[in-house]
Amino acid sequence: MKFFLLLLLGLLPLCAQAVEVGERLAPWTLLDQFDQAYTLNDQAQILLVARSMDAAKQVDAALQGQPKGYLEARHAVFVADIQRMPRLIAKLFAVPAMQAYNYRVMLDRDARIAPRYPGAVDKVLWLQLDKGQLIEQREYSSATDLRQALEQVKP
């Protein structure tokens, strides 16, 4: 009996519904690399989600050389899922390194937010929003393509 209960609980996250085009995203709050809170609101037009270090590196490469406030000017929010990273490594090395970035990174330390938006682990998920409603979903596997897409967005 315990086995079946554990199996059911283990499969429960797989039954969670992915957000579909036309649906409104539920608001959430995360801390950035400076421990400043950000709450998803209707002003956000682009939500970038990186589920792995490789995907986060793609975002970083796409933003190299861009001025501070580049993402904010495009009403874009970047969420990095860092729950697989050992907490000590995150605290001592990764998060302090992120403080040198000239853009905000919303840190999903406990995988509370990123799993709401399923996608490939090695790609950057781009969710196009209009007043909190999902209108388009894309994935990027190269920093060059992501950079070009961001450059097409008018600040």
Rank of each mutant, 00 (worst) to 15 (best):
L6R: 11
I46Y: 07
A120L: 07
Q33F: 05
N41I: 05
D32F: 11
D32K: 04
G65L: 09
L5M: 04
L31I: 06
A90L: 13
K91N: 10
V21D: 08
A143Q: 09
L5N: 01
G10F: 04
Y117C: 08
A94T: 13
M53F: 08
L107D: 04
Q128Y: 10
I135T: 14
A114W: 13
I135L: 12
M1R: 02
Y101I: 06
A62V: 12
R84C: 02
L48C: 08
M1I: 00
L63H: 07
E136P: 00
E136S: 05
D81W: 02
V49F: 00
I135C: 07
L92M: 11
Q152A: 14
V153D: 09
P86N: 14
N102G: 09
R87F: 13
Y70L: 10
Q45Y: 02
L127H: 05
R138T: 02
K2H: 09
H75Q: 15
L47A: 03
N102K: 14
V95C: 00
P27F: 00
A90R: 10
M1V: 11
L7V: 10
A56N: 03
V153H: 14
M53I: 10
Q152N: 12
Q58F: 04
Y101A: 11
V21A: 10
V105E: 11
G65T: 06
Y117N: 11
Y38R: 07
L63P: 09
D130P: 01
K91I: 04
F4I: 11
Q66L: 08
R74V: 11
E136H: 13
M85Q: 12
I89S: 08
I82M: 09
Q66D: 12
L63I: 03
V49E: 04
A56W: 00
E139H: 08
Q83L: 04
Q128P: 08
V59C: 03
A111Y: 08
L88W: 06
P67Q: 10
P155S: 01
Q66S: 14
D130S: 13
D110G: 01
I82Y: 13
K154P: 02
A149I: 04
M53V: 09
F4R: 12
D145Q: 11
I46C: 03
Q152C: 05
K57W: 08
D110H: 14
Y38F: 15
V95K: 10
A111I: 07
E20C: 05
A100H: 14
Q17T: 11
K123E: 01
Q99L: 07
L48G: 12
L150H: 02
I82D: 11
D42T: 11
A18Q: 10
N102D: 15
R24E: 15
F78T: 01
Q17P: 03
C15Q: 15
W126T: 04
A50P: 05
R84V: 13
Q43K: 11
Q43E: 09
G10R: 00
R87V: 13
G10K: 07
L25M: 12
P13D: 09
Q133V: 15
R109D: 03
D81E: 06
D110I: 00
R51S: 01
K123N: 05
L47R: 08
D145H: 12
K68G: 09
L134Y: 05
Q17V: 07
C15A: 15
F34G: 04
A73M: 00
E151T: 06
A26T: 12
A61Y: 06
V59W: 01
D32P: 07
F4S: 06
E136A: 15
Q17R: 08
R138E: 12
K131C: 07
A16F: 06
Q148I: 01
